[in-house]
Nucleic acid binder design. Structure first.
Lengths: 261, 261
DNA sequence: TCACGAAAAGTTGTATGCAATCCTTGCCAT
DNA sequence: ATGGCAAGGATTGCATACAACTTTTCGTGA
């Protein structure tokens, strides 16, 4: 897979993560092919890749849609992140060189800048910055299997984590966590960074899906629980999508994207 | 993706997991297409899927190979499994119904049968049984994100875990773990099952890659560590592969498959 | 003899055409 | 009026043809 397919995948990734294409929206192959000026073949390739990353869901003979997550799945995702990401950060800290720490510093600072309440608060920009921030730590952990396991859920969660639902106080906490994490990394204190990451995730989870692990009364007697069948229940989110006018959609931030129920 | 592609993916998965196709072997699209009697298109689709699962590695413009893991990656994989799979088992236990427990029982018993030392010890069969055993627990945990994260590493590890390297005593321990896990599940004792799974993984890791976490002296100053570039360093494992004579290869168990360095 | 380079063969990447499946719309019977 | 059914349209899945890249091989010159 190269040039066309990779490019198409990246374009779609950006559009999805930025919210230009709302979650649940249908992704017709012909439409995408026309819009991105490539054939359907690389489009299919790209959709496969994004499906593997968890960004889109493919149903046989029925096309692809932008993925969406139930609040239950969201709980699962955070449970997973809590189990892996603090560990990843601890492993990463000793591996970080000066350049990487500088980049983390820059990212954290930039997020503080664009996230500061008031006008010209650019929440959409945070999504991408945040993704790079977490991604840098994950890569630096130096464990490809760990990175692969986390990629999907950070993508997924980050998309959902559209920061629009953040209460101002929680958002500020989150941004300060980033800064503190950089400080911990610079000090070479892996366990410090790990602790902050854990707090970071708890904070995010609390705003995302009511707080607490809800450990008790969790099973609620869902008998078999048929593995993982496609659970996209008619999420046809607007978007008439006549002609090739997808440009102006880029500006509109989706408000409650990702969360299904 | 359906019929042809799914079928091709399953066929390749089986051949890889059973060891019929040795790790590191090249997977030419044309050859596979001819052998499985489908076009190259579904083959590419299948390879993409398997790459997402971590079973094959794709290098742009250079084709696909059966994945192989360095002993360092193997350590990473077990670190990941240790972090996720015991938890998965604990979550799964309350969800298991009688039928599933019966199936687990059957699988554990069957593994004891075919794994018992002596002649007609069928090690190849254990790989598949073991995969189903672990997979059943993982699915029953009821967390699609968790399942996806684990799928890759259990696949990978199970492939490597070809049981040929097991010392007889370690293999027996492993088989007894399965039986005990079923007992714990039947008793509804999630924490018991969790503990056994943890021991199970430690035991596997010890035979796989020298024991111990090797926590100290782990960083060994690998400076940048360029994210995740393709690190398949000429693993051209024999297999002249003239003509379409891939049938007889099905019988030969690869002896030290998966482990690269 | 070795190194460098170019051509050729083989393989992957992309585009397009056709077949199969699914969804929609309209009609008919109850 | 509502439910079921069939035909049409639209979309996905697969196959094949062509283009681009990579690797190998053979030849030439130092």
């Amino acid at each position: 897979m190269r040039a066309a397919a990779e490019q198409a995948a990246q374009a779609l990734r950006d559009e999805i993560l930025s919210g230009a294409i709302p979650s649940g929206a249908r992704l017709g192959e012909a439409e995408l092919a026309g819009r991105l000026s490539v054939s359907r073949t690389p489009i299919r390739e790209a959709l496969s890749r994004l499906a593997a990353e968890g960004l889109v869901e493919i149903q046989p003979n029925r096309g692809a849609r932008v993925a969406s997550w139930s609040s239950e799945q969201l709980r699962d995702i955070f449970e997973l992140r809590l189990r892996l990401e603090p560990y990843a950060v601890r492993q990463a800290v000793p591996n970080l060189d000066a350049e990487q720490i500088a980049e983390l510093d820059e990212l954290a600072a930039e997020m503080m800048r664009v996230g500061k309440p008031g006008r010209n608060q650019n929440l959409a920009a945070i999504v991408e910055l945040n993704r790079r921030f977490h991604g840098l730590f994950i890569d630096a952990a130096g464990s490809p299997p760990l990175a692969q396991a986390l990629r999907g859920v950070t993508h997924a969660a980050v998309v959902t984590q559209n920061f629009h639902d953040y209460a101002p106080a929680a958002l500020l906490r989150s941004l300060h966590h980033h800064v503190e994490m950089v400080a911990a990394a610079r000090a070479g204190a892996g366990e410090w960074a790990e602790a902050i990451m854990r707090a970071h995730l708890y904070n995010a989870r609390a705003t995302m899906i009511g707080h607490g692990p809800e450990e008790a009364g969790a099973q609620e007697a869902t008998t078999g629980r048929g593995s993982e069948g496609a659970g996209a229940q008619e999420a046809t989110t607007g978007r008439g999508s006549e002609g090739a006018g997808a440009q102006e959609a880029t500006t509109g931030h989706a408000t409650t994207m990702g969360v299904r129920a």
